[in-house]
Design a protein around this nucleic acid. Structure first.
Lengths: 344, 344
DNA sequence: CTGAAAGCGCTAACAA
DNA sequence: TTGTTAGCGCTTTCAG
């Protein structure tokens, strides 16, 4: 008395086709060593019967699972949703399912999710979301990733993960930070406040490094600017904006390190009757779909999120290379209506 | 010579704990019939060793998989991303993984994905995205769903799926359509154009039905209004807006049937120098996160997407009931800056 | 309450 | 080229 029978099994197909299950298996899994005629017949029978192989049995027997795991901070966040979209696209093209895990932006949860995915028997894991600068977190991640790869699993990450040594798609965060800061500086802004997420994230460090380079070109230093750290979300942007406007009412520009925060900043400035870009210019980072439709349209740095998702899975689909591969995702400055020359 | 060994197996734990694998299994799966003392010892050993059960083996043996499948039209779309977020939240709380599938808004792909998920051995499927009015699609969906449930699987849908007979979370689309239309009518608008997605979707039919009710209250009929059908996306909204403004330049309001389309409408109106809400009022539907931050802030109908995702999985987690359960997700009119009284 | 053993459905040696 | 068969790691009767 079986509890959950999908009904058809390989034997059924084999019987109907008048072959052994071994032959049936080979025919259906596209393995070599079956005459094309037989293979064709088996496939026809399978299709006709509506046979679908049991993944669990297959994975158990072969030791390889077709599933791919995707770890994101928060799937409701457009940045990750777009990355996921790219991953799903490639996965679909390869007939693979994608298991998605939330981490809620907690690096320890990230490690736990990695372990969970490995336990869930996926063969491939894509980690989206910034690497962490905390040595302890890095070590845990590394241990987990290596354990997974040791069992034949493949891993690719999106973002810079120091020391991890796996294939990676790295967005041009430094260049992006530099170009967006350069844009503000070229407009004459000097009293610039930065709305940032946790500085323990590699992404933040990189974007800030780019900002610092641009500042350096103008004889300025990041240390002289207010850098407010808050949650890397819309609400975090609101918090940061409030702190900035309270403590530094004389700023002429707010450089937010992602679009979510920028939206929060715009929201608070709007509430307070501060005109953008009349009184204060605001910039974002990422260029999520809606950025161009905000009030005002957001000047930001475009990152090809969906493509990054695609590339990451494509890397992970490749066999492991001796040296970790690295793809750079280019940034592009999108100048829109939220920035203007500083007022005389 | 094993190819993909996660290393630890149940035997290892059993040996370390000095019990049989049967006992170890019972202890770890929380089954009854083991003395609490032994169970505790086994669990301790398992934790210490870092043992994680092989899902494939477990699913194969027990015939039940802990994975839940989620079918969405497009994960990059904020509406579905938020629903997914709710589903992931509940899944996480129950220690389950979520496999997400795209359908690209193709109803046939939806059926295929259902089959794929069933084949992938998930035990639970949540289908997000509107039901279809096409009888043929309905029949296929139903056949697939019943086959899945016959094998012990559980299904819950988000949205109205006529005739499907499974647990459902149904957003108040009719009431929402009615309230948003009523809002425009109360502002004096009469020459209203509707930007809609495919009318073969139940969601569209319901929202339009609500609009029609409101019109009826004012002695008007939907048939007298231009209803432009386009893709249910931002670009579709652009297409619809162009058609509307070209064919009916005298409209005073555009009622878009989701926020994505409304954003596209705003975009086109902006390009053409049509002031919103000065010349034309615009409304959306869903209230995705950014709706309140658009230019101008969008008047729309709020649907609790994340909660809908949560509820759907909660329903699916319950044992099948004799009669399909139904939860209604309430709508709420959000009046913002994109609507104003019609000009005298 | 605990252990031995029979599968779950499939793949992959190994034979023929 | 095709078939036979021994597992993959776990759950679950069935004995003890």
């Amino acid at each position: 008395m079986r509890k959950h029978t999908a009904g058809l099994r390989l034997v059924d197909v084999a019987e109907h086709a008048g072959v052994s299950i071994a032959t049936a298996s080979r025919a259906l899994s596209g393995a070599t060593g079956v005459s094309e005629a037989l293979a064709e017949r088996v496939r026809a029978v399978a299709t006709e019967l509506g046979y679908v192989a049991n993944v669990h049995a297959r994975s158990l027997a072969s030791g390889a699972s077709p599933a791919v795991g995707l770890v994101v901070h928060e799937i409701g966040d457009p940045y990750f949703a777009e990355i996921a979209s790219g991953v799903l696209e490639v996965a679909g093209a390869h007939g693979r399912m994608v298991q998605i895990c939330h981490t809620g932006r907690d690096p320890h949860a990230e490690v736990a999710q990695l372990r969970a995915l490995a336990g869930a028997g996926v063969g491939i894991i894509v980690v989206a979301g910034s690497g962490h600068l905390d040595r302890d977190v890095q070590a845990q991640m590394k241990a987990q990733v290596q354990a997974f790869e040791a069992t034949g699993g493949r891993v690719a990450v999106i973002g810079r993960h120091p020391q991890l040594g796996v294939d990676a798609v790295v967005p041009a965060n430094v260049a992006g930070g530099r170009s967006i800061a350069e844009h503000l500086l070229s407009l004459g802004h000097r009293r610039i406040a930065v709305a940032a997420g946790s500085r323990r994230l590699a992404t933040m460090a990189d974007r800030l490094a780019g900002v610092e380079q641009a500042l350096g070109d103008h004889g300025l230093r990041l240390a002289d600017l207010p850098v407010v750290e808050a949650a890397f979300t819309l609400d975090g942007g609101k918090d940061a904006a409030r702190q900035i406007m309270d403590a530094h009412p004389d700023v002429t520009a707010v450089l937010a390190l992602n679009d979510d925060m920028a939206v929060g900043v715009l929201s608070v400035l709007g509430e307070r009757g501060v005109s953008v870009p009349g009184d204060v210019s605001v910039t974002g980072f990422d260029d999520v779909t809606v950025a161009g439709h905000l009030s005002p349209a957001l000047t930001t740095v475009r990152l090809p999120m969906k493509q990054m998702g695609r590339q990451a899975l494509e890397l992970a689909l490749l066999p492991r290379a001796a040296r970790a591969r690295r793809r750079t995702a280019e940034q592009r400055l999108m100048v829109r209506a939220s920035t203007a020359p500083v007022r005389g």
